[in-house]
Design a protein around this nucleic acid. Sequence first.
DNA 1: GGACTTTAGCAAAACGTTTTGCTAACCGGA
DNA 2: TCCGGTTAGCAAAACGTTTTGCTAAAGTCC
Lengths: 336, 336
Amino acid sequence: MSKPTIIDLAKAAGVSPTTISHAFSGRRPVDTETKERILKLAREIGYHPSSMARGLRSGRTGTIAIASSMPFSVAAGPSRLGFLMEIAASAAMSALTRNIALCLIPPLAPESNLASLGFDGVILVEPTSKDPLIAHFEARHTPIVSIGKVAGRTDIPAVDLRSHETARMMLDHLRDMGSRQVALIVGAADRTSQLETEAAYVAFCDEGGMSPRIVRLDEDGGEQAAQDATRDLLAASPHLDGLLVPVDAFASGALAAAHAAGRRVPQDLRLATRYDGLRAKLARPGLTAVDLGLAEVASLAVELLLARLDGTPANVMAPRPRLVVRRSSDPTAPAG
Amino acid sequence: MSKPTIIDLAKAAGVSPTTISHAFSGRRPVDTETKERILKLAREIGYHPSSMARGLRSGRTGTIAIASSMPFSVAAGPSRLGFLMEIAASAAMSALTRNIALCLIPPLAPESNLASLGFDGVILVEPTSKDPLIAHFEARHTPIVSIGKVAGRTDIPAVDLRSHETARMMLDHLRDMGSRQVALIVGAADRTSQLETEAAYVAFCDEGGMSPRIVRLDEDGGEQAAQDATRDLLAASPHLDGLLVPVDAFASGALAAAHAAGRRVPQDLRLATRYDGLRAKLARPGLTAVDLGLAEVASLAVELLLARLDGTPANVMAPRPRLVVRRSSDPTAPAG
DNA sequence: GGACTTTAGCAAAACGTTTTGCTAACCGGA
DNA sequence: TCCGGTTAGCAAAACGTTTTGCTAAAGTCC
């Protein structure tokens, strides 16, 4: 006996398929007693409406996707995985409560294979402005929303990650803790979070009369690249006493370089990073970081996408970021 | 202009829909020249076959799911997230190369909402033998494969994680490094990996004339529970000089407790854990762990599920686990 | 130059829903 | 008794594919 269809159920209940459909969808009134009989019977024979047949009729697959185009070494390596997956897990929950399945599009998915899959919409995590995934889905008329605004693309609804505010919060904190010469180590891609961070940093330097020192690293390089760059930076600029390193993998590398160079953290050199993931928590000393409220960000992104599917998109703000102070910047912070 | 259908393309190419279908699927020969014309035209007008229509006809959704029933605090908290997500990311890649989408079923998904989603099959990550997810999908006739065998369920095709071998490898290593009294701290659920680890441990103790000392912890407790339990354990058994702690979150806690109790790791107390994730790498000292080859495990699971869908399931072995020795057990291991 | 086989393609019937009229029965009011 | 309105339900047409026979036309063999 294969899966029962709406016809089987209709026969069993002695009504027409139409009535079954209405009983489930509620789009037309059905006699209460009949409806209950139908639902009970459905449970008994194990009937579940076929998502494909429904989708074919309604034009929706009931499936959305989430993707990040980060380089694989950053995205799938341990460093970025946390960030992306923390979002994905929350988004999946959020979607599921609306009877929508969330698919994972792995980084570097060969475009050709994406083609045949049908998603109602897609969430892009911090795409760059020229991201191939944007082009891909736009060509396919798949609605996009992004987590983090896309530079120059105001037409893509986004959850604003407040990166300017986040950066400013960290910089002010470093200053309050005593740093007078802060450098910035950042990824080279033109993600909005990095652009806004740079802007906030330049403004910060301006106000404090510092000369800005920005190091841009290829995201592919990961921890090791950051360690090398930081070694050189510290050698060239011995007066540095603060380091803003938004990418957590880079922060790990910077911390290692600081140790190697004999700088005491946080006494000689204060460090802060953006994503408050496992890396920040487990580093010694723990890395001062920012709680971005990713669970809520993910929920907002799902809601935003659904709103977009219904034709009423409206940009939305991430929850206010919250500084998590640890020993990498504040010697009085609790250990652990 | 809405999405072009096979009919539009057929008209444009001056052939019947049948021919289009064959041109794409290759199930019947089509004149090479005609086929090329069709494919070219398809690209031009932006035709993509509808996955739903296809699915409706063929009975496949082209979507598989991956789920873990780990308690949320363990699964979605930073501790287990790495393990699950490392698998999920690889599985997604693997599925995508076969034109299949991988959906994420978040831990603790309310069953009611799972109901309406149609998956061709599902991969369960280390389910317990009485896992509600198993019951759920079996009731729905959704084919299941699991990563890690399911105790008492030889009918569920599984990727054998070789947990007995893995445990033995770690125990032998601890002995070789000088441990004479090794305790085991393990999760309380009846996952095969834990059962096999216990069995291996008991056999190991037997051979070496040790009296086994097993602490079973509720997986919900996370790092803190492990820290508390380890504190008590070390106080009660001061002669302990080795600790096998397969769950990496527990291992973090155990390490903290060891430090707090003034035990030097690895000189007084050697420690090993199973999953070689961020935790093991970042701990100080680094935790000796096992490279389980999760990327390959995930691929195997996808292949296994696909084989099961085609009716030819056959259990399969994970790649041979590989010990990653770090300072938590071997003082001569390289730092970092 | 027949009798086969191969090749290239078409028509039509599924697949399991949702949606859109439509009908028949019933109700209350005038 | 008739009329408008409500209620409960049905029949049939989509939705966009894949699949199964079928038909011509062309090639192959003796």
